[in-house]
Design a protein around this nucleic acid. Structure first.
Lengths: 328, 328
DNA sequence: GTACCAGCGTACTACGTATTACTGCGCAGG
DNA sequence: CCTGCGCAGTAATACGTAGTACGCTGGTAC
């Protein structure tokens, strides 16, 4: 039983080359001995590491974490492994180096700025997450539809002025959301520049400070769009502290439908996305490209979930039965 | 300039073997050409993949995410890479296989049950996080001191009965915490079995349901210890829904000092830990073991942070200035 | 009876690195 | 003038796999 025979059998290329009894013997021996082909040797010989890098701005944020999980599970199914790279500054260099070393076969970029070096000809395969670029492969959420649904909901409630807690961190997600907000206001005869807008990072201090700033503004709006649920939570915490009643005095909408959206006071109306699916789709796209295919980009759907931060609970409802899927 | 010469120079083993002019020429050429040694070949030859696996129960939980980040940064400093494995069921098999394939050199286990197969003789190097086992290397938090500080705080406030929202997921962290809670009660003439205790998973539905259960209990306790901030948030959300005032009617303490602890209503008194340091320490321990050393296990400190969920804010304080480091 | 072919395996090589053993050379000591 | 030794560098090898090309055997066609 030569080494070649073993390789052929175990890689499933034995058809018509190796007789079934021999193949079976090989398989049994491999099982009994607990044999696993060596990853390094395989990578060296085949030129593929069976690994992809995921570059993410901040693993700490639940949305990123869930995306990571989705990507990791999809990768595992295809026998691939996910290498995490979480580091604001050094991302560009780090990623490029790791790739040149052949540690990974390609990248998933969930950051605002993928290294421009990767756009050079002969660049390695990669997929952008929530970052649509002309002629580059990407996977993204249908932020536009989700934002429109949220704005329509606020409009239905009679709110004309709509304030905005924006992410201080840049990103296409936020830009696209902002564009829909502007469009909505203009379509209803409002001037976007007239609306109260504040910026915030994602840590607790920043979100609360931004919330205070917005709520104490002389032209405090009756409704506020927040770039995500974390920012919305900060706004709610600030409202609580300042004694501003939600939703009676201010209606609040977040995005992402994180767990935290159910835990706030009141529970948060938000736009639901599926980060696990986003991560999985991103891996699948990259995997297809590694196979030399040209898969189509993907846009994943959204759904508005209405809770207590926009619609007051019945005074004596005594329950938390506000959850209802909206139109999405 | 032979291949050997290049290898010697770039790996820093050129002293006394290669003349300085030659070495310098090699270094410059490497830089100009952007040469990076191939990871697979290096791994194959040296037997080390310069990669470690991190097995984590749930990347979605912020504490895990931050630990992951800490480990990843420490690994990067030593030129290592972190492979993420997040998968409840398949962890044991998956991890063992990946290791036998040589994809990683060792593991960091942040789970309740590391595969028992790894305890066999000839087992690969690994480090347990928050899971102390006799004769196995580990890194953990000083949960005991943190819990004692929290309990002392509640005692100082005059609370004798102390309810408990426990994690439905097992884990040594929670067991050790529970033991201190029992000890504290007994030391003050209370019977642990008499206390109201509920269990909860970490998703929003579970935490809120558990909170409701505890708060509607006929012998509702005046103070509650929660196994972490996420569970405490659910309790606060339930209190809010049921109109139970915190801290006047129920005082609440959480653990971990996650961002969410600043965002709840009221802000959460909690025990602060440093998950990034935990992750970094875990990697450092593993790295030392990979070098053949026998590093000492590490126990990282805790600190009680007192906020509004145990001590009411001044009625007209008008600010959020309650934060204060406690003893711990 | 020879030529050919299919069926089944196996020797050999390359992948890029780290390491070991070796070579060539100049110089000092005897 | 020969021996020996230290310096500078190189040839050769092994790591474990995937793939290619080859070899052997037995049967069939002419």
């Amino acid at each position: 039983m030569s080494q070649t025979t073993v390789s052929l059998v175990l890689s499933g290329k034995a058809v018509g080359r190796i007789s079934e009894p021999t193949a079976e013997a090989v398989r049994r021996a491999a099982r009994d001995l607990g044999y696993r082909p060596n990853a390094a040797a395989r990578a060296l010989r085949s030129g593929s590491a069976a690994a992809v890098g995921l570059v993410v701005r901040d693993v700490t944020h639940p949305f990123f974490g869930r995306t990571l999980r989705g990507a990791q599970r999809a990768a595992r199914e295809m026998g691939h492994v996910v290498v995490l790279i979480d580091d604001g500054a050094a991302v560009a260099d780090g990623a490029a180096e790791i790739l040149r070393e052949g540690t990974v076969d390609g990248f998933l970029f969930f950051t605002t700025d993928p290294p421009t070096s990767l756009r050079a000809p002969g660049a390695p395969p990669f997929v952008l997450i929530e970052n649509e670029q002309s002629r580059l492969p990407f996977v993204r959420l249908d932020v536009e539809a989700g934002t429109d649904a949220a704005l329509a909901h606020l409009h239905d409630l009679g709110h004309e002025q709509i304030g905005y807690v924006r992410s201080a961190v840049g990103g296409q997600t936020f830009d696209r959301r902002h564009a829909r907000w502007e469009a909505h206001l203009r379509a209803h005869g409002q001037e976007p520049a007239q609306q109260v807008t504040v910026f915030s990072a994602f840590d607790a201090d920043s979100t609360i400070a931004a919330g205070r700033e917005l709520l104490t503004h002389p032209r405090r709006p009756p409704a506020v769009l927040c770039d995500d649920d974390v920012l919305a939570s900060g706004l709610l915490a600030a409202a609580d502290e300042l004694g501003v009643r939600v939703p009676q005095e201010v209606a609040v909408v977040g995005f992402d439908d994180l767990d935290i959206a159910r835990l706030t006071h009141p529970p948060l109306t938000t736009v639901h996305f599926d980060p696990e699916a986003l991560g999985a789709a991103a891996f699948e796209l990259l995997y297809a490209r590694l196979q030399g295919k040209r898969p189509r980009n993907r846009v994943l759907p959204s759904e508005l979930v209405i809770r207590g931060s926009t619609v007051a609970a019945e005074p004596d409802a005594g329950g938390l039965s506000l959850d209802a899927p909206g139109h999405g």
